[in-house]
Write a protein that binds this DNA or RNA. Sequence first.
DNA 1: GCAAAAGTGTTATTGCTACACCCATGC
DNA 2: GCATGGGTGTAGCAATAACACTTTTGC
Lengths: 230, 230
Amino acid sequence: MTLYNEYDRLLVAVDCIIFGFHGDQLKLLLIKRDFEPEKGKWSLMGGFAKKSESLDDAASRILMSLTGLQEVFLEQLYCFNQVDRDPVERTISVTYYSLINIEDHDEELSKQHDASWFDLGEMPDLIFDHNEIVDRAHQRLKYKAEHYPVGFELLPPKFTMPELQSLYEAIFETEMDKRNFIKRIDSLGILVKLNEKKRTTGKKGAFLYQFDEDKYKQQMKTGNKFQIKP
Amino acid sequence: MTLYNEYDRLLVAVDCIIFGFHGDQLKLLLIKRDFEPEKGKWSLMGGFAKKSESLDDAASRILMSLTGLQEVFLEQLYCFNQVDRDPVERTISVTYYSLINIEDHDEELSKQHDASWFDLGEMPDLIFDHNEIVDRAHQRLKYKAEHYPVGFELLPPKFTMPELQSLYEAIFETEMDKRNFIKRIDSLGILVKLNEKKRTTGKKGAFLYQFDEDKYKQQMKTGNKFQIKP
DNA sequence: GCAAAAGTGTTATTGCTACACCCATGC
DNA sequence: GCATGGGTGTAGCAATAACACTTTTGC
């Protein structure tokens, strides 16, 4: 079939916003771009879509190539489509944001790409419209973390309540009362409290918790809704 | 410059989900497709992106060509990207949803496209993945209408409380208590009550209201948040 | 023994839900 | 005069927000 012949074909970039969390700070993994244009500037990790591959798969591939991670949280964010956003050629960018446990990523790989982590509040100027993309990703993360249990993706499997709280404080850019926070989390009925303490922070040590996927599904079935208010 | 030479270019479709509201029902404007493949089947209105045009502009153009409307609510929904979603050629579809006052659209134009309005609950089978697209659009509309004053886009400039309520009931697929509904709307402080009644429905007639953009902005400035709970 | 972070309950207020009767008018 | 849809208030309950002291232990 040779229908659709008269129409334009476009370059489709796939760019990834990679969130991590460490030491009370939301962080983003950025690369030093190693090709023209804008070689040497900071940028989101990206690549181009292939004809034989879905964009979802392309995003996975690109994320994998920088972090070594697969099967992590990865969701389409938005298609940025201004005509002149890339000076070389008309390119649209379909963006995906990812939430990873910062300890899991492959440091060797990220070194190869001249990548490094930046606090969300202290980002350099990025190429093209990437700063705008990051803003939108943060907005989406705020929404998503409020209504779905995605925060845990940014933490190790075992984490403490103070860690969880400071994660949400970083995402929402607010401060919260710790008693109210714990009450809210507790009432969700989706965590398991372990009989272990993490002793690295503080001197008393804090109990470790785990997110329990099954408990979460159970809660949703019974009509309860996940929600953490900012 | 001839960078980026090695990469694939893709067909980019732009499809529009056009919502309307009439007689207690959320409705969608669909067209009978007049070209192959799937000629004669029901479909969303769409077109292909041009190299020299942003996708936002393409969506406006496509919406305009079917409804005659410009400057109406139009927002990007999602990029559907499965490799085999269009059997002819690899095509990604960047979708936009629109909210229009059903009385405003140009019936001549829509006749030319063999378009007609369907209740959201009584949709025919659509081509490709368009049913899935509609589902996602409805999900988005639920979210958007809950948190932003977009419902008014679906109504005439002057509307009654019972009309507004049944709009929200249609969007959220729930029933609401009319006293609580009015209380909530009133407390937002964004409507102007007019000294006119609409007498077509019922025998008593219902007071007309108008949405006041300035009042809305004022309310948001003072920290109030728009929210209509389902 | 003291500094640093973890853990723990109660109260006041606010917001939300549930609920039933009268009103105005067209026929 | 009666049928139809429009309009109105309150009370009980649940969720939320505000708030301060004690505990543990590494140094």
